Amino acid sequence: MADSQILVHMCCAPCSIYPVKVLRAEGLSVMGFFYRHNIHPYTECMKREQALDRYAETEDFKVLRQKDYDLKTFLQHVVYREADRCRYCYHDRLKSTALLARRGHFDCFTSTLLYSRHQNHELIREMGESLGKSVGVPFYYRDFREGWKEGIETSKRLRIYRQQYCGCIYSEVERYLGKGALRITPEG
């Protein structure tokens, strides 16, 4: 894989630190992709995007980003399916990355979701591999969780903006009000 170009879905700067380091050490040329439809509120999306831009500039790699902010469509796909919202979110982010990797003639693609201890790692891997086969660009699987602490320490040392929740409005509610705060009942 050395000298190959990889498109990396990047959810934020802190989660990108360790994967970028490892991928470059493996000889891959890294380009990032910032997906923004799931991040709420818009001000949070902008904080994450700006932090990622600053980090990318410091580390000398480019980041592609969506030009729009389609929170409405994201919410329409997960409303009343909140318990399974991550499945939709993973799929949409990975599919967007895979399609962009195909258009950009990348050798492979991956995601910084594979860095987080809070994500469903096996589901991400299965989806990535399936999407890679369907679009004709291999999914590059790597378990980046081993660098969890290193990424946190580095982001703190570099004073990079560190968010306190995954990104969607539901994870924000769970972060601040607890896991049981999202109980949805027929009565509302």
Rank of each mutant, 00 (worst) to 15 (best):
D84R: 14
K149N: 15
Y141K: 10
G132V: 11
S116W: 12
E122G: 13
C12L: 08
G136I: 12
A2S: 13
R93N: 11
C89G: 10
V22T: 02
P19C: 02
R102C: 08
L75M: 15
Q66D: 15
Y80W: 12
S155V: 05
A98W: 07
L23N: 03
E57N: 02
E172M: 04
Q66V: 10
E82C: 00
L131K: 04
R125Q: 15
I184K: 13
H77G: 12
E59N: 00
L182Y: 08
V63W: 01
R125T: 15
G132P: 05
Y176I: 11
W148R: 06
F144K: 01
R103G: 14
L182W: 09
E122Q: 15
R24A: 04
H91N: 15
R125L: 13
T185A: 07
S130R: 14
E150Q: 11
C166P: 05
L158P: 02
M1V: 10
S29W: 01
G178I: 09
V22K: 03
K62S: 04
R175I: 11
D68T: 15
S134N: 10
Y88K: 09
M127N: 09
C168A: 09
S29L: 12
Y80A: 14
R87C: 05
Y90H: 14
K72N: 11
G180F: 06
Y35Q: 08
Y115R: 03
E150N: 01
I160T: 12
E150F: 03
S130F: 04
H118K: 14
F61P: 02
